[in-house]
Write a protein that binds this DNA or RNA. Structure first.
Length: 431
DNA sequence: CAAACACTCTGGGGTTCAAAC
DNA sequence: GTTTGAACCCCAGAATGTTTG
């Protein structure tokens, strides 16, 4: 185990990712290293331990009676298979106690699924192909950052739906559905029924949303959808809004052969005219080269209470990664809010600012929400060391929408720091 | 050599479920 | 019955090394 710790230390001390790969390659035959990386970085193995809960354990202060029989892998298997509880937390303490600090820290990092050496599944899989299971779907980039990508090219505009991403297919007649992160979605009998009409080994990619029986606004429908999607057991009234299609083998290889335009045509022909109750096609709103149409359709979408639109380049193939051949077009809002608190960050932000808590006004009342995204490293350091620069000041921040929660409260969804301190005013305002 | 890409890290609101209180 | 912790939906954005044109 000491040898492994030295290898990880070497990785920590190396900035170059090519060098990290070289270090791992030099140890390719080290089965223990391979096993440790597998247990640490496999996204489907969950140990339900966080830094906070580990800190609470205070290993050396509380001596637990008993000795853990087994190694770290036995412990991790035990945690992975069961729901976490105080008995299992006690088992973790039992395992860690008595071991020297170096070893304890290493085992803790394993349990936290992060060896803190800036590597992840992608880097590990460059050395051991397929060791860490990965699941990738095509992801869009932001239109505002890549507007030049569509100039002079033909594109297809569709509605952007605010629900939960899902890919689904049938293999040997068996229906399977997965979220964006590769979590299997169960309890979809209604959608499965419609798959009688879909041949085997064809992947449908889309967004599931609750059927909008109550004519909810987009953000309320999103919340209602999440309630249904995230609960166990049979899910009801979910509609699979499909926007893409490709053969299963091409999806698994990570790239389609056909262009977006051809795929949308095939999708239309497959779904059109069939009596489907829980699968619908996301239909093109516009096909052409006129970029003015994008803004026009975005405005329409916002007027209709929708999230925005997607711009798909007509000749682009499907790729299982983030790409600039699909662009999302959304409108963000800004507000002047008051900074009332600051919280220290974690990990590389320890000793620096993590987030600010701000006060905003909504429906005639004051609410608070956290803003943690958008700060540069320098800002995090400066504001943490000199809090008076921000505390009690009015700042302009961005957000997508005001979200409501089950307790009747409100917050900012996708709130971001914009580096704007309003020294000219001391009033909160939304605009 | 600059620009684009790839990869990793950290931050948010909100929901469910199970365990703890 | 209520609160808390963990996982996972939705993400945004910064930083930095690597590859491309």
């Amino acid at each position: 185990m000491n040898q492994i710790i030295n290898i990880i230390k070497a990785l920590q001390g190396e900035n170059s990712t090519n060098e990290k790969v070289a270090i791992l390659k030099a140890n390719k035959d080290n089965e223990l290293l391979k096993k440790i990386l597998y247990y640490t970085y496999n996204p489907y193995m969950k140990y339900k331990i966080t830094e906070k809960s580990l800190d609470k354990m205070q290993i050396d202060d509380v001596i637990i009676k008993g000795i853990y029989i087994g190694d770290i892998f036995n412990l991790m298997d035990e945690l992975n298979k069961n729901n976490i509880n105080d008995y299992l937390r006690g088992r973790v303490q039992m395992f860690l106690q008595g071991k020297d600090k170096k070893l304890q820290d290493f085992y803790k990092m394993m349990l936290l699924k992060d060896l803190r050496c800036n590597i992840s599944a992608k880097t590990i899989n460059k050395v051991w192909k397929g060791l860490i299971p990965q699941f990738n779907v095509m992801l869009a980039s932001k239109y505002w950052d890549s507007m030049d990508r569509v100039e002079g090219k033909e594109f297809i505009v569709t509605t952007k739906l605010d629900g939960s991403r899902m890919v689904a297919w049938k293999e040997s007649g068996i229906f399977k559905a997965f979220t964006r992160q590769g979590q299997e979605v169960l309890g979809l009998a209604e959608i499965e029924e419609d798959f009688i009409n879909i041949p085997d080994n064809i992947v449908l990619d889309g967004e599931i949303l609750l059927r909008n029986d109550n004519d909810l606004e987009s953000k309320d429908l999103y919340r209602a959808t999440m309630k249904e999607v995230r609960k166990d057991g049979e899910k009801h009234s979910l509609i699979f809004n499909v926007f893409d299609i490709l053969p299963l083998n091409e999806f698994q290889e990570g790239k389609s052969k056909l262009s977006c335009k051809d795929r949308k045509k095939i999708l239309h022909n497959l779904l059109n005219g069939k009596d489907l109750k829980h699968i619908i096609e996301v239909k093109p709103l516009y096909v052409g080269k006129d970029t003015n149409k994008i803004i026009e359709l975005l405005d329409n979408a916002i007027t209709n209470g929708e999230e925005g639109v997607m711009v798909n380049l007509s000749d682009a193939v499907y790729e299982c990664k983030r790409t600039k051949t699909i662009l999302k077009v959304k409108k963000f809002n800004e507000a002047d809010v008051k900074v009332i608190d600051m919280t220290e960050g974690t990990g590389k932000n320890k000793g620096k600012l993590g987030m600010i808590t701000v006060q905003f006004e909504h429906k005639g009342k004051l609410w608070t929400t956290g803003i943690g995204s958008g700060f540069s490293d320098n800002e995090r350091e400066l504001y943490w060391n000199q809090p008076d620069i921000l505390l009690n000041k009015i700042v302009t921040v961005g957000y997508f929408e005001i979200s409501s929660n089950a307790n009747g409260g409100y917050g900012f969804r996708f709130g971001t720091w914009k580096s704007i301190i309003r020294d000219d005013k001391d009033e909160i305002s939304m605009y």
